[in-house]
Amino acid sequence: MKSLFKSPVLGCCLVLTAGCATSQPNTFTFTADLPPDFTYQAIAVYVPAKGETCTVPGGRNTAVGYNMKWRGNYQPNAEIALRRTVSGCPLVISRIELEIYGTYGKARGDFGADIASVFIREEVEDQYKSVVNEAGESTFYGECQQLFRTSGKPRILRKLLNCKTINAQGERGRGQPFAAYTPDQLPGKTVKMHIKLADEERPGWGDTWVKVPNGWKRCMGKSFEDQDAYCNGNYTEFSTFTMVDGRVCTIYPGCTE
C-alpha cells in the first residue's frame, strides 16, 4: 500500500511544550461494533515524542494491551492514552495493532483471526485521513468473511477469517480495515471499528469443494487420507467431514442433504 503519511513522527501538541494546548484530555476511547461471537484484541504502541533523543531500555512497557484475555473478559470499550512517560522518556502513541477474532466452536482453538490497524501520525494524506464528526466520533469499516476448510485425518471443518476494509457504502477494498488520524483529532474523542460479516462463507482455497444447489461438497481427492484433496476434475466423488460439534456431514453448511 502507498504510504498513508507525510511524516513518520507525531506532532508536538501531544506533549506539554510551549505554544501547545495543555488542557485537552490525554485519552481517547476506542470501541468496536462486531458481529455475534466476534471480539478484538488491541495493542497500543508508543514511540519517543518528536524531538526526544531518549530511549526506553529494551523497549519495555512501550506498548499497552487491551482485551488480552478476550476469551473470558472481553470489554468493547478501551480508554487509550495519547502520551505516556516510561523510564523517564516521554512517549506518544504511534499506532494501534488490532486482532479480530471470530469464534465458531467451543474448543479453545475454534476461532479464525485477522488484523486491522489504527495509525496516528503528524500528517496524513487527505485521501487516507479519517474524519471525526461534530459529536466527536469517528468510524472506520471492515467486512470479514469466514473461509472453511478441512483439517486432519477425520477432515474436521475449520474456519479462517479474511477481513478487508470497506467504505460506508459497503464497497470492499483490498487491504485490511484501517483508520489514520493526526494527534489533534483524538483528545477526548471516540474511534469505532465497525465490522460486518459477509453474507456468504466460501472455501479457504480453490478446487477443494464443489458448489451444489444447497451448499458445498468436499472433494475426495486421492483418498480420504489425502490431506490436500484437490478435486482435479473429479466432481463426482466426495467425502464426509466432521463438524466441530462432532457431527459427521456430507454437505456444508446443512450437514445432511
Score class of each variant (00 low, 15 high):
Gln75Ser: 11
Arg71Tyr: 03
Asn61Tyr: 14
Asn73Thr: 11
Ala81Gly: 09
Gly19Lys: 11
Leu34Tyr: 00
Tyr74Glu: 03
Thr17Met: 12
Ile80Thr: 03
Ile80Pro: 02
Gln41Pro: 01
Pro25Val: 10
Phe38Pro: 04
Gln41Tyr: 07
Gly51Glu: 15
Thr55Leu: 04
Gly65Tyr: 09
Ala42Ser: 14
Glu79Asn: 11
Gly72Gln: 02
Thr62Tyr: 08
Ile43Tyr: 02
Cys20Asp: 04
Ala63Cys: 01
Gly65Cys: 06
Val45Arg: 10
Gln24Leu: 08
Gln24Val: 00
Asn26Lys: 09
Asn67Cys: 11
Ser87Lys: 10
Arg84Val: 03
Ala18Tyr: 03
Arg83Tyr: 08
Ala18Leu: 10
Gln41Leu: 06
Tyr40Asp: 12
Met68Arg: 11
Thr85Ile: 12
Thr39Phe: 01
Glu79Lys: 09
Thr22Ile: 01
Asn26Tyr: 00
Glu52Trp: 03
Thr27Gly: 02
Gly51Arg: 12
Asn67Gly: 07
Ser23Val: 00
Gly59Met: 08
Gly59Cys: 08
Asn67Thr: 04
Leu82Gln: 04
Thr31Pro: 05
Pro35Ser: 15
Thr22Val: 06
Met68Ala: 13
Phe38Gln: 07
Asp37Ala: 00
Arg83Met: 12
Glu79Val: 10
Ala81Arg: 14
Asn67Glu: 06
Met68Leu: 15
Asn77Ser: 13
Ala81Ser: 15
Gly59Tyr: 09
Gly58Ala: 05
Asp33Tyr: 06
Val86His: 06
Ile80Gly: 02
Met68Gly: 14
Ile43Cys: 02
Ala42Lys: 01
Pro48Gly: 07
Tyr40Ser: 07
Gly51Pro: 12
Ala49His: 09
Arg60Ser: 05
Thr22Met: 01
Arg71Ala: 13
Gly58Asn: 03
Asn61Lys: 15
Lys69Asp: 15
Phe38His: 12
Gly51Val: 14
Thr53Ile: 00
Ala32His: 04
Arg83Leu: 03
Gln41Thr: 12
Tyr66Val: 11
Phe38Ile: 09
Cys54Thr: 04
Val64His: 05
Gly51Ser: 13
Thr85Val: 13
Gly72His: 01
Asp37Tyr: 00
Ala32Gly: 12
Thr29Phe: 07
Tyr40Arg: 11
Glu79Met: 04
Arg84Tyr: 02
Met68Asn: 13
Arg83Gln: 11
Ala49Leu: 08
Gly51His: 14
Ile80Cys: 02
Thr53Pro: 00
Gln75Cys: 02
Thr39Cys: 06
Gly19Asn: 09
Val56Phe: 03
Phe28Met: 12
Arg60Phe: 07
Glu79Gly: 01
Ser23Glu: 00
Leu34Glu: 04
Ala21His: 02
Arg71Met: 11
Val64Thr: 15
Asp33His: 14
Met68Pro: 01
Lys50Tyr: 11
Glu79Gln: 08
Thr17Val: 15
Pro36Ser: 12
Gly72Ala: 04
Asn77Phe: 07
Lys50Trp: 09
Thr29Cys: 06
Phe38Ala: 09
Thr53Gly: 04
Ser23Pro: 01
Pro35His: 15
Thr31Met: 10
Asp37Arg: 01
Asn67Met: 09
Ala42Phe: 01
Thr62Cys: 12
Ala42Thr: 02
Asn61Val: 05
Pro48Cys: 10
Gln24Tyr: 00
Asn26Val: 09
Asn73Phe: 08
Asn61Arg: 15
Ala42Ile: 03
Gly72Trp: 00
